[in-house]
Design a protein around this nucleic acid. Structure first.
Lengths: 341, 341
DNA sequence: CTGGACCGTGTAAGCGCTTACCCAACACCA
DNA sequence: TGGTGTTGGGTAAGCGCTTACACGGTCCAG
């Protein structure tokens, strides 16, 4: 059996209260006692039981990360930021992928007792978000909003980024620009498509719905959708794609059709996943600082956990257009900072 | 405050023991009692405290996933398999990225009290592995072995896969084949390079060390290393690359040098990450079933947790060559099953 | 009609910590 | 020297569960 606090106390010749005080950095114990206790801890290899500690302090020092799609490159980057920042604050991270399951409410209910707070990714069930909010469990929402619910939220400015991307394509002088959106249910996708329409409008183009298609955010979906666009009698000269994974699929579709990017069709993606600079041609895309948004999410969450009175924040992170080859520019990797909102 | 078991008991007019029994599926309570308790649970929105339960049962129903590099595509796939399988068994998953930190022993020690078992990825500190083993914490090792320690291990057959890949290049008739390995410390990389050498030997080639270079498993490292190879007075006609990320970087380097894959240099990667079929040319590579190995890891771990007497297993998963374009074959996506070990 | 077997519930003792509260010891000042 | 502070350390009461054991009813065989 693992040693308990009693074993340590006995060995050090003190009471368990003193051991606890030493371990929790109370200023009371004298240096001599402290040394004795620490020595006992070391020789016994004592490790305080997390469960007992949680129970006594009613805190778990753990946060949950609930995400629809654990395996997208986007998520990977996010998880890195979150994990590192959580560790910095001495919190553990429990992950929970949704993998397209419904009935999240029931599925996740028991989680709330294992963690002090949660970070919820985009496609979370709205009902579930409301349940959490009612329970008073601290959480932060990433990439989406829930109408009429005051919760802290982190999103990147998808409108701004998409607007800049489409405007860039317009400036290139491409006569017809299509959009390849994500799932119709995705809030972010809708925002990006709205920006697309707005940019066209602002430049005096009429945006014909014929030019908006949807896919599932994956490479294969992007590839299929792009193939569809190319099969049109008069295919678009450029396409704004709502995420990089689909853009990479689109690249493949263009190649399959025996055409060139950007020569025949120019492409712009969204997210700036690492692979965007390794495909050929390299992908012009809109960068969001995923890693940083993960860090920020943890900071806001922990602030909320430690002080429930913290006010709700709604963070809108800036995005910026990263110009590479697929849009038709010659120069590569020119970072083109965006003017603020 | 959240309701406790006492609240439920009071409301249902029974003792807490009965509530506990109902909640834990004991056969004792009568249907009537059961209904009353369940009704009380529902109206109160009662949720048993995980901490208290852990303490009483001395089990956490949680496993930890400790990995050096949370952000590689490889890991992403693995995490999916692990997470899903863990959920199936009603276990939670705590993730812990190492991010190249040293002193893991101290860093991770406190983890052992939060979990019932661990899945350890390749570059884990050997000292740490030994500590865990001494403590008797169940764990499974992925992708590496520790000399003289009988622990259950899951690896894919890197030798077999690499051997097949290099043999394939040889059959293509390429007169000179180089190898681009991972970090020199990586066990898997060493195994793959050994297979490379062996394959050359077996076909009567002398393997000159000049043709082995190392990089860091990332795209950028692969790109730089490949650039180095291409700058040689007599560059290799083909390169076996120890993972796909580096192979993708290598692809880029070849393009930068104004040459063609596979026309001027043929390339074979390892892992079959999703992106391997989306780069251009598509990457011939060695497939390991990462997702499945994650599932398997969880199964073995849980078996160990639930029955500490389970015997140690050493699993060697098969790999197979996936032939695409980068090796110089015409046909695409032909799956070429390997003969067993 | 009584003794034992059986069975649903309740009682209470943990699980391993934290922490409010109390006490003894000592220092200090009047 | 006695009273008052101050302070390190001990005592014990939880935290919210699980579960061994005790207990009081039923039921049926003798």
């Amino acid at each position: 059996m693992r040693p308990t606090i009693y074993d340590v106390a006995e060995r050090a010749g003190v009471s368990i209260a003193t051991v606890s005080r030493v371990l929790n950095g109370s200023p009371k114990p004298t240096a001599a006692t402290r040394d004795r206790v620490l020595a006992a801890v070391r020789t016994l290899g004592y490790q305080p039981s997390a469960a007992a500690r949680c129970l006594a302090r009613s805190t778990t020092e753990t946060i949950a990360l609930v995400f629809p799609e654990v395996s997208s490159p986007f998520f990977v980057e996010l998880i890195r930021g979150i994990e590192l920042e959580a560790r910095r604050h001495h919190y553990h991270v429990l992950i929970y992928g949704l993998h397209g399951e419904g009935k999240q409410d029931q599925l996740l209910r028991f989680l709330s007792t294992k963690v002090d707070g949660m970070i919820l990714g985009a496609q979370c069930d709205e009902a579930y978000v409301r349940t959490l909010h009612r329970q008073g469990l601290p959480f932060v929402l990433m990439g989406r909003r829930v109408e009429g619910l005051a919760v802290t939220t982190i999103r990147s400015n998808g409108f701004e980024g998409a607007y800049a991307a489409v405007t860039h394509l317009i400036r290139h002088g491409y006569g017809s620009i299509a959009a390849l959106g994500g799932p119709e249910a995705s809030q972010q996708s809708r925002i990006r498509l709205r920006a697309y329409a707005q940019a066209l409008d602002d430049h005096g183009w009429h945006s014909d719905v014929r030019w908006i298609v949807h896919a599932d955010y994956h490479e294969s979906g992007g590839q299929a959708a792009m193939a569809g666009l190319l099969a049109l009698p008069r295919p678009p000269r450029a396409v704004f794609v709502a995420n990089d994974q689909m853009a990479i699929g689109a690249l493949e579709a263009v190649r399959d059709a025996g055409k060139q990017v950007p020569g025949d069709v120019a492409l712009v993606g969204f997210d700036d996943i690492p692979m965007a600079s390794y495909v050929h041609p390299t992908l012009t895309t809109v960068r969001q600082d995923i890693y940083e948004s993960g860090e920020l999410a943890v900071q806001l969450l922990i602030r909320q956990i430690e002080d429930p009175a913290t006010s709700v924040e709604t963070i809108l992170l800036p995005t910026r257009l990263v110009i590479r080859q697929s849009c038709g520019c010659d120069e590569r990797e020119v970072h083109h900072p965006n003017s603020g909102v």
